[in-house]
Design a protein around this nucleic acid. Structure first.
Lengths: 263, 263
DNA sequence: TGCTGGATATCGGGA
DNA sequence: TCCCGATGTCCAGCA
């Protein structure tokens, strides 16, 4: 059985339900609850309806009816404790380092599910900064004619340079890559690396280039005033399909047709 | 009725179920699905068991059985479409700006819930950077004797200064606050602000102080070499309780006793 | 709407 | 473990 559930459970049944399933299933509780958190910060949340999700890896999420972010949470590795007290179902999650304690006082449980979630597939993502770096390494003249990349992820005391290389005049070139619009922090980062290299090799032999699809106005101004450069490059997106097994299974789905119908 | 649910629903029933509830309820689907995303980046996720959560504000989350983060998602404001095709239930979420499209191909739906989630309470959080700023404004000698804060969130072309003030010798003092261990980026940020002020008011009349509970080694080295300063301060945590109504309702719960029992 | 920086950020990689 | 930076970061506040 993939899914077990209790509708409007008796609180004693709920306790057994969680005891039975929490180790290998995602537990979802539709509940009316209050929440107390104390750790890196500290918070309270008064009584309201929320979705509580507890994963077998110790992650815990409490979701309101809005936003992408959980209102309270614990990261993987946290330990779960629970008990019944005064007709409330109380869940406590403890993270050891840093020490953080989260307590859910569930006044009502409307519905509980346990989902034995079998998943052997990982996300295949394309369009990352790393892929920009690979592309530039394979095709350095995307930056400029005569550019030679020498090192990726080159470590210096003030950080990690995305790509270090030399230009056709043998100047050092430091690239800072951003997959999205670059901002002031991106420029600061590049400047920090360039300054270290200038201290080491002399003012006139080090160039810094910010590589990104675009720049904020503030970033552009700072870049200019610091004599740093900008090269517009978009992160590459590889072609992707779902696995063959899948395409076969559902080969009558015509994605273009779906799109036409919807858009 | 707070909660409606379908166990092993017929796909046609599911369609009606979602049509009926999606506008005012959180929809949770325990499903076996594949996911395609294309937007700022692009991804595929092959068939596996996942929890899908759709909120009335358009947020959409797809959770695997591990980690705090959803494997795929859409932020609030996205539009949901759905339909049945080849015995699959297909959900499409479209975000307009930036344009991002997410498609869930649900091969099986094990269980579906709709939760009319009524929640009028907001999170009360303490221990933020903003509260550090308030504390320093009220009690400036936490920084040093004779420090006078003049402005909070002071905007300059290269960013926003947390606290701008003067010391007892009438030097400008720029504070950069961090609620947690400060790193290289924190130092760069402070340095960026200090450099703007030095250009404006002269080298010797501007000090920069990083205010945080601690520093990484790299941050400390950079701070020293740039003649910036460090002041160790922890973010304050206010006393908090759940609302009176609540404490009254559950006044027999003794939190200390709970802690003793558990820890 | 764009810009800026905080966040209980989370997460992964490297030393 | 600490350090460092990416993230489809999300999100609020402000000009």
């Amino acid at each position: 059985m993939k899914v077990h559930f209790l509708h409007k459970p008796d609180i004693k049944n709920l306790e057994n339900f969680i005891k039975k399933h929490a180790s290998d299933s995602i537990i979802i509780l539709l509940s009316r609850c209050s929440v107390i958190y104390d750790g890196r910060a500290k918070s309270t949340l008064n009584e309201g309806d929320r979705v509580v999700m507890i994963k077998p890896d110790g992650s815990l999420l409490i979701h309101k009816n809005k936003k992408r972010e959980p209102v309270n949470w614990q990261p993987p590795g946290s330990s779960i404790f629970y008990k019944v007290e005064n007709k409330n179902f109380i869940i406590k999650s403890i993270r050891k380092k840093p020490r953080e304690v989260l307590e859910i006082i569930a006044h009502k449980i409307y519905h509980a599910c346990a989902f034995r979630c079998e998943d052997y597939e990982e996300l295949n993502l394309t369009g990352s900064e790393e892929e920009m770096a690979d592309m530039i390494f394979k095709n350095p003249k995307l930056i400029e004619e005569g550019f030679s990349p020498l090192s990726k992820e080159y470590q210096i005391p003030t950080g990690i340079i995305d790509i270090l290389g030399k230009d056709k005049n043998n100047n050092w070139v430091i690239l800072e890559l951003k997959r999205r619009r670059a901002d002031l922090q991106s420029v600061s980062q590049l400047k920090r690396y360039v300054e270290y290299f200038k201290n080491k090799y002399g003012e006139k032999r080090v160039r810094g280039i910010l590589v990104a699809p675009s720049l904020t106005t503030g970033a552009l101004n700072l870049l200019k005033s610091e004599n740093l450069e900008f090269k517009k490059i978009n992160p590459p997106k590889k072609d992707q399909t779902l696995s063959k097994k899948l395409s076969k299974k559902y080969n009558t789905i015509n994605k273009t047709a779906i799109l036409d119908e919807w858009l």
